[in-house]
């Protein structure tokens, strides 16, 4: 354990609401322990702001365990910061040094308008799922779960794709603000399972259409999405989605 406390120079995006103009603001924060998580560091800043009667920095977070997909910060220009396969809430301050400058901004994309400070509106993702990210089965009495064996290989691949937490880092780090990795992960998960195959064509078509409609950009193979994904969602999902999409379009 390292008990040496750090002092940091923070530059944080402040914006009162979608209607207000935003700007970067400087803060000097001392007393940061290397054992803190990145969000606990922001908590510390907020605690001080509140004590001074200032408005604390608004940011999204909930589970603080890297699974809910709520946290979403650009840290020194990288979605979720410098550590690979790590969400902002799981990033720890031991990866920074005394005296460091840290620039903190919201996830930026046309489809993700800022709500306040570092908080953005990602409801466009829900809209894409509404367009077909499901199996059309009602609650009731489906057949026994073991009636359809699924090869372990496909089950594992489906699970790899299903691990997406919907945080939007892929969109925020893509120069075109494309949502291809997110959308392809859902399409792949369902395409890999027999339960999802019945609707596979219609699903691919309508989800892709919705993705364009709500303002996400095109994919031009930068692969920044994969590099920034905290859950390691693989680019091969995009290839699989394209296959499903062309099957739908040309058959």
């Amino acid at each position: 354990m390292n008990d040496k406390l750090m002092t940091l120079n923070l530059k944080i995006w402040r914006q009162k609401s979608a209607k207000h103009k935003g700007r970067m603001q400087d803060y000097k924060l001392s007393g940061v322990s290397p054992d803190m998580s990145f969000l606990e560091m922001v908590d510390l800043l907020n605690e001080q702001l509140v004590r001074q009667g200032d408005d604390p920095v608004a940011f999204d977070h909930d589970c603080r365990e890297g699974i809910c997909g709520m946290c979403s910060m650009m840290i020194n220009g990288e979605a979720h910061g410098p550590s690979a396969l790590t969400t902002t809430c799981q990033l720890h301050m031991r990866h920074f040094h005394d005296g460091d400058s840290i620039v903190i901004e919201p996830f930026r994309a046309k489809a993700f308008p800022v709500i306040k400070d570092l908080m953005v509106d990602r409801s466009a993702f829900d809209k894409v799922i509404q367009a077909g990210g499901f199996v059309s089965v009602n609650t009731g009495n489906p057949q026994d779960a073991n009636n359809i064996p699924i090869s372990k290989e496909n089950a594992d691949l489906a699970m790899d794709a299903a691990a997406c937490i919907g945080c939007g880092a892929c969109v925020a780090s893509c120069p075109n603000a494309s949502a291809m990795l997110f959308v392809s992960a859902k399409i792949s998960q369902l395409a890999l399972l027999p339960q999802g195959q019945v609707e596979a064509k219609a699903r691919a078509e309508s989800m892709v259409q919705k993705m364009d409609e709500v303002g996400f950009g095109n994919c031009s193979n930068h692969a920044e999405c994969e590099a920034s994904c905290p859950k390691g969602i693989d680019l091969s999902n995009i290839a699989r989605m394209n296959r499903e999409y062309f099957k739908a379009k040309f058959s």
Partner: peptide
């Protein structure tokens, strides 16, 4: 369990393909 599998929940499986 039946309902979740029908929805496409990717539960862990054995090599034979069963849950």
């Amino acid at each position: 369990i039946d309902q979740c599998v029908a929805q496409g929940v990717p539960f862990a499986r054995e090599y034979g393909g069963y849950l």
